[in-house]
Amino acid sequence: MVKTAASVAVKGLRAWYGGVEALRGVDLEVGAGEIVAIIGPAQAGKSTLMSCLSRLSDEVVGLRVEGSVAVGGEDVFAMRDVAALRRRVGLVAPLPVGLPMSVIDNVTYAPRMAGARKGPELRERAEKCLRAAALWDEVKDRLDQTATRLSGGQQQRLAIARALSHEPEVLCLDEFSIAIDPVTTARIEELLKAMRSQVTIVLVTNLIHQARRLADHTAMMWEGRVIEVQPTAAFFDSPQHELTRGYLEGRFG
């Protein structure tokens, strides 16, 4: 269900909420099919950065953005069809959100909104996505039940299945594991590893070990900037930046 991974290039990205500067010039390159983890303390601008990748930043009242984000070489802020961009760049939010409709309708929502008709083909696609999100076995007998009745962990995997349903080139996961248990987290991490190279994954996480387990590269954000990017092993073994060292040693944040 995944087509081709696309590269992501962020250059000089700045963002303001009213007068407060949330991003102060972010530069970040993610190769096609890579997994990149972004770590850093709260208020570092990680979520704001994620919202810019699919221009969900457009919907935030009072948020002003400058700079450039390119997905697969195309400048996203120059795109006219935002909906198409959002189908190319999927997002999974920190807290699980099952849309108030049946499980199957959740997974077919994005294709339907893009013009696909209900039918066996769409159902097949939904099954694939649910399998990919390791949710199929648990929900296959209750596809017509309301999604909001699922458990938190199930809803989060549903959100991942939903994000896969529109065949994204980039998948953004914003602290996907904060509301779910370690076992489910481990299962999802397996899925992400399996998808490597088919889709580019940008992962914001507070779990340093999660970054270590999954990411090809790891980036450190601090007060609206990316202060360090390295291949993951190097990032953790020999962090160059003083603040990164301090953060990894748990001196703050």
């Binding site: 269900m1 087509k3 189908r87 294709p111 893009a114 013009g115 696909a116 083909e121 065949e167």
Partner: peptide, 12 residues
């Protein structure tokens, strides 16, 4: 399902 979907002019 390989081709990208496009919403019809009608629906737009």
């Amino acid at each position: 399902m390989s081709a990208r979907l496009h919403r019809s002019r009608w629906s737009r």
